[in-house]
C-alpha cells in the first residue's frame, strides 16, 4: 500500500516538473507546477515530516502559486513563446543528471528513511519550535528581517513615481 502511494507521489512530483518544462500555455505550466508541489508535499509526508509537508502546502501550493497566477494575469502574453529548441543542451543536462544519479545510487549510504512504526525526530512538531527558538534563533530573526526587507522592496518597486519628481529616463 505504501509503495503505491509512494509511486503516485513520485509520479506527481516528477511529472509535474516535466509538464512545467514541456507545456506552452501559462496556466497549464502553473497547474503542472502545482501538481509537482503536491507530489513533493506527499513525499515529505511519507518521510514523516508532517509539519514541513503542511508548510509546503500552505506556502508553495497556496501563496506562491497564487502569486504566479496573478503575475501571469498581469504580465503574461497568452503563451510561452520559448520552446525547448536547444536539443544539445537538453541532452547534456540529462546526461549530467544520469551521471549524478548513478553516483547517488552507487555511493549512497545505506540508511532507512521512513522507520516502520518508530517515531522520527521530524514527525514531532515541538522539536521544530525548540530548534528554531534556541539553536537557530539568530537565523530565525534574520529570516524575519529578510522577509520584511522583501516586503518594503516590493512596495518600493511597485509604487508609481510621484508626479512632482522629474521622471528619470529609464530606457
Amino acid at each position: 500500500m505504501e509503495n503505491i502511494v509512494y509511486g503516485i507521489f513520485c509520479a506527481m512530483g516528477v511529472g509535474g516538473a516535466l509538464g512545467l518544462l514541456l507545456n506552452r500555455g501559462y496556466i497549464n505550466a502553473v497547474m503542472s507546477m502545482l501538481v509537482s508541489m503536491l507530489g513533493m508535499s506527499g513525499l515529505l509526508f511519507l518521510m514523516k515530516a508532517f509539519f514541513l509537508a503542511f508548510v509546503m502546502l500552505v506556502v508553495y501550493a497556496g501563496a506562491v502559486m497564487v502569486l504566479f497566477v496573478f503575475t501571469v494575469m498581469l504580465a503574461g502574453e497568452s503563451r510561452d513563446n520559448s520552446p525547448l529548441k536547444n536539443r544539445a543542451g537538453v541532452v547534456l543536462l540529462w546526461l549530467l543528471m544520469g551521471l549524478s544519479a548513478s553516483y547517488f545510487i552507487l555511493n549512497c549510504p545505506d540508511l532507512q528513511v521512513a522507520l516502520e512504526g518508530g517515531v522520527s525526530a521530524l514527525s514531532v512538531s515541538k522539536l521544530y519550535g525548540l530548534s528554531l527558538f534556541t539553536k537557530f534563533m539568530l537565523l530565525f530573526e534574520i529570516a524575519g528581517a529578510v522577509l520584511l526587507v522583501a516586503m518594503v522592496a516590493i512596495i518600493a518597486i511597485a509604487k508609481e513615481p510621484s508626479p512632482e519628481r522629474p521622471k528619470r529616463e529609464m530606457l
Binding site: 505504501e2 509512494y6 513525499l43 511519507l46 518521510m47 549512497c108 545505506d110 532507512q112 528513511v113
Partner: peptide, 9 residues
Amino acid sequence: MENLNDFLI
C-alpha cells in the same frame, strides 16, 4: 520505499 535513495532520486 524506505531507503534514502528512494527519496533522493
